[in-house]
Structures are given as structure tokens and as C-alpha cells.
Amino acid sequence: MKRPRLNTVVMMILKRIGLGIFTLLIISVLIFAGVEALPGDLAQAVLGQSATAETVEAFRKELRLDLPAHTRYFSWLGSFLSGDFGNSLANGRPIAGLIGWRFVNSLFLAAITALIAIPVAILLGMLSALYRNTWFDRFVSITTLSAISLPEFFVAYILIALFSVQLSIFPSLSNINTQMTFLQKLYKVALPCLTLSLVVIAHMMRLTRAAIINVLTSPFIEMARLKGVSQKRVIIHHAFPNALSPIINVVVLNLAYLVVGVVVVEVVFVYPGLGQLLVDSVSKRDIPVVQASGLIFASTYVFLNLTADVLAMLSNPRLRRPR
């Protein structure tokens, strides 16, 4: 019975990839239309207050902004499909070079945070389920929920005030660069990591707890208990595996957030990630850069969702072997 199982998974992956590509295409149209709909264009945005009719005209002509929108979209799409990301309109640098190392930085921060936050969150979730309604459970819930209720920049400033200004343990700037060693980088990103962890842990922890408690009400758990299995064993061996699919979903959703949603933290800690690039490019109407970073974000979502579904399927025998 091995072949059909593999086939279903592969078929699903292929189908999802196809759908994903279609989604990306639609997203690229939406991004383009969105940036077009914003008032002003690159020439005016770059020149700002110093835009005169003459210089704006020269800008537009050189960057071909005077062509109609659909012409520019399809010419962008054409080169994009042939693997050419193009150059930034604002400073003429190749986009691949602009985005590459920033995306690596974004992934680095997300990965380090995930490595800390996910185990902590799941462990806390399981412990909370285990000691449900005790002072421990309440304490964990209250602290994590308070952390998530505060805006992330506020959490960031509090951490800076405490660990950087008062105690001088960690730096308040996380401006990492390629000359740094791995350990130096780790030290530099300590505070943004901590901030993001505080923000995502509550969500994952609460959902883990809820999913496990939900499973705990099922008949087979009652059966296990009646057989005399200990509460710890019930949760780890019986409830947790069955609660995995919602947990995987929420973990992956938070991962996606860690990659694409951390602009505020990037600004506060001056971290050179992709978010800042996207914000700058939107405010300067630099469409090719917006497109490229937007598509990277979208692909991250599509890919992570796909991973979540595949993992959920593999973790669930009923989904693995459909009748």
C-alpha cells in the first residue's frame, strides 16, 4: 500500500504548486495595479519637493514611465519569466543584488527566532494543557498574552531600555553585515529575536494548548485514561500526535509572519531585512523592486502553506490514506 500513498502526496504537491504559480501571477497584477493607483510616480517621489516639470519629464523618459501601464507590466513580466529581475528604477542597481542578501538576513532572523520560539511555545502549550487551570497555566497565559497585546515596537523599546540602556548586555542596533562572524551576528540580533519571540509565542502556545485540550475530550483519550495511563503519557503519546495538524498550521503561519511581517522590528533595531526595502520601494514607487519583493513574500506564504498541508497530511493517517 506504499505507492498510492506517495502518489496522493505528490499529486497534491504538484496541484498546489500549479495553483501557487497562478496565485503569484494574480498577486503580481494586484501589486502592479496597487502601486500604479498610488498618487505620483517614481520621478516625483524621488525628486520630492525638488521636482520641477523639466526634471520629472527627463526622469520619466529615461525610465520609460511615460509608456502606458499595461505595456510596462507585460515587458516586466516577460523579463521576469526569463529570469531577469531587472534593475531598480531609483538607483539602477540590479534587483537580484538588492534583494538577495536582505532576504538572507530576513531568513536568518526568522530562523533564529523560530528555533527559540517554536520549542518554547509548544512546550509551554503542552505544560499548560497538562497543568490546566493551575496557577502555572494562568501565569503562562497571562504573561504571553500580555506580551502579544502590546504593540511590537513597544515591546522592542522596553527591551532596549532594559537590556541595552540600563544593563548594557545587548546592543540596541542590529545592523549586521557580511564581515561579521556567526556569533557576532547572533549577539547583534539578540534583542530583535527576543522581541519577535515574545510576539509569536503567545499565539502558538495558546493554540497548542487549545488543540491538545480539544483532543483530550475525545473518547479515545478517555479510553486511555480508563486503562490507567498517566496524564503525562496521555498528553505526549495520545493527545499531542492527534493535535499536530492544527499546531503545524499555526506554527507555519507564524513562520510566515516572521519572514514577511517584521518591518516595525526591522526599523526599531535598524536590521537590514527585506521589509525595509519593500517600504522604501513603495514610497518611491519603484515598481520592479516592489514586485520582486512582493512576489518573494507571496512565494514564502504559498510555500509555507504547502509545507503545512503536506506535514499535516503526513502526520494524519486519515489524510494519508484516503479511502
Binding site: 523599546y157 540602556v165 548594557s168 546592543p171 542596533l173
Partner: peptide, 13 residues
Amino acid sequence: INDVNARTNALKT
């Protein structure tokens, strides 16, 4: 460092 608080903290530290 476009954020004024980040600039101030960086100078202070």
C-alpha cells in the same frame, strides 16, 4: 537609522 528612538538609543549606548 531613520527611527529617532533607535538613533538616540544607539548614541546613548
